[in-house]
Simulated assay, not measured.
Amino acid sequence: MQGENLTIWSFFSLKGFSRYPKLEVVLFIFSLVMYLITLLGNSTLILITILDSRLQTPMYFFLGNLSFMDICYTSAFIPTLLVNLLSSQKTITFSGCAMQMYLSLAMGSTECVLLAVMAYDRYVAICNPLRYPVVVNRQVCVQMAAVSWVTGCLTALLETSLALRLPLCGNLIDHFACEILAVLKLACASSLLMDVTLLVVSVLLLPVPMLFICISYVFILSTVLRISSAEGRSKAFSTCGAHLTVVVLYYGAALSVYLKPSSSTSQEVDTVISLLYGVLTPMLNPIIYSLRNKEVKDAIRKLLGKVSLHRTRESL
């Protein structure tokens, strides 16, 4: 449907992996398994941080937020991806596309800020342990988490509203989801406001938090190396190592997609990176924290023990 200068599309077609029809069933199984593991792992992590009193600390409060974000992020696009992988008509409505774009941007942006907040939490816990209960108290934790969510949601709202107001000369998105860069390629003309907004938000939410994380860990590493106890060093490296692994996975993939020359790689490579970034990272987060953290493993065993005991009682 066309107006004078603006084409309004009621739906979009998602190109996705349609050029490789033989791989679509394999990708469906891969994405479905990863999604189910993501839901199970992150839901379990949220549950144990609520039920286990030993895990009701700032670090696990932020970890619970991270897990909830990962569930929302993957749920924004994987269900649509799964349907389209088995469908001949790979379409999404305009409102569905707008919601998908907004949720993906909001959760991704929030996670960027939250990972920096978690680095600050580890910095205070290791470098100023005596002041930690005062500096990072419950109220401060809630405030920092709220800032992360508000920042992510507002920047996503700005980017999404600007992107969807641009006149589009087509409705075939060369991606498996309504990813903002893929949608912007359909614009009839470039928008300086959109380009500047995207650049400023990308810089503020990617290199800046990453620089803050790096500086925090320089101080953390310096402090850890001065710890005389081998057990103390091991515990510090364990909690920080899990966080650093998540940071490297998340920022590495995000930087490769959003802060690179547009002609440096093909769209196919970008699509594959986006799939791995969107499916694997949220799935790996709870696994990384569980494998490297004795407290989390103990809490999971305790939860599983309660579940098996409850089932035994019901069977009797």
Rank of each mutant, 00 (worst) to 15 (best):
S262Q: 07
D270R: 04
G241Q: 02
A254R: 07
K235A: 15
C240R: 06
V247R: 02
T239K: 05
L225V: 07
T239V: 03
S228E: 13
A236F: 11
I227Q: 15
S264G: 13
L204C: 08
S202L: 05
L276S: 09
E268Y: 12
I273H: 12
P209A: 06
I215T: 00
I213R: 01
T281R: 05
V248C: 03
L204R: 11
Y258Q: 06
T281F: 10
S238P: 04
S216W: 11
S266R: 11
T223V: 07
Y251S: 14
S266P: 02
V208Y: 05
S222G: 15
F219Q: 05
L276Y: 10
T223S: 13
G278P: 03
V279H: 14
V201C: 04
L280N: 01
S263E: 05
S228Y: 03
V246C: 00
P207D: 07
S234K: 15
E268H: 12
G252Q: 02
P209K: 03
T239A: 00
A254V: 04
C240F: 04
F237K: 00
L275K: 03
V246W: 15
S202Y: 14
I227T: 13
S216D: 03
S256W: 03
L275I: 02
S216V: 10
L225E: 13
Y277Q: 13
I227N: 14
V224Y: 11
